[in-house]
Design a protein around this nucleic acid. Structure first.
Lengths: 153, 153
DNA sequence: CTGCCTGCAAACTCTTTGCACGAAT
DNA sequence: ATTCGTGCAAAGAGTTTGCAGGCAG
């Protein structure tokens, strides 16, 4: 999905929900979709303020759930008391994260079998799966060998 | 592992690390191993205080990492800004969680394939897996049908 | 105009930490 | 006696919220 298409979807979503298209919300959208890596709420605030310096932290936190509900953004919780976000480029919701614990880089890996697994296990418990998360925390081989984590940067 | 064996392991671990066996640490241990379900730090404090009312919140938070390092306790992060803990009855570290979003009950499911998956994916990235998490968030079928979530309690 | 949206700052939740006292070895 | 452990309360991090004023529709 191009950024233009994503922006159109965002505005359309706001309209559908009776929410207003404000400069702050647009700035937050633009800042989010300019990112190529995972980002935090604080980083998003910083980038959004570069576009519109009237954006406040509160509005970032109030806008993030809207963008997640509309499937424009994906929330990635890697168990660090700090949430990461990522523009949802494709429609691949079945994604696992491999996290380099040495440089904190997060790799997104397609893991389609997760859906099957979740459905199988849940049905035995009388449950219907909603969302799934698979996360692998790993150490960098290169760091141990050469002292440099090649994933960094 | 019986509670007696676990207690022995705890005391042994403390000794090995040059840590002291205090009444507070023992009370926290007993409180943890009396639980049959997942519990939070706050719940652990409450139960530990029922055994030894001198136990403080700080000591609970300082003792939890010790019990986790010694593999007596397992930390379960289900992405709620609140960590859950569980006595580690067996040695099965490859466990997935299925969470009923209606009643917040957590089911622990063995998922041995996770280890294979983590190793396969990580090696392609030049990484060595350390820990893995698989989590399925699900809704209760019975709740939708009858208005009662049968997993509760 | 109307009412949703905003920034600000304070509140909130969970967890960690500095300090002086207290207890285990 | 030492040294580690402890409770208390304050600090800390990330996020949420009440309020009075502002702007989209």
């Amino acid at each position: 999905m191009s950024n233009d298409a994503a922006r159109a979807k965002f505005q359309s979503y706001l309209g559908t929900k009776g929410l207003r298209v404000t400069n702050q919300r647009l700035a937050i959208f633009e800042a989010a979709f300019a990112q190529k890596e995972h980002f935090t709420a604080e980083e998003l605030l910083e980038h959004a303020r570069a576009i519109d310096d009237s954006v406040s932290r509160a509005t970032v936190y109030r806008t993030l759930p809207i963008m997640i509900e509309s499937a424009l953004l994906r929330e990635v919780d890697i168990g660090k008391n700090l949430k990461y976000y990522l523009p949802n480029q494709g429609n691949n919701t079945q994604v696992a994260q491999v996290i380099c614990m040495d440089c904190d880089k997060i790799f997104e890996i397609s893991a389609p079998f997760m859906e099957w697994y979740g459905a199988t296990v849940s049905s035995k418990l009388g449950l219907t799966p909603a969302t799934q998360r698979l996360q692998v925390n790993a150490h960098c081989d290169a760091l141990k060998a050469t002292g440099t984590c090649k994933h960094r940067g």
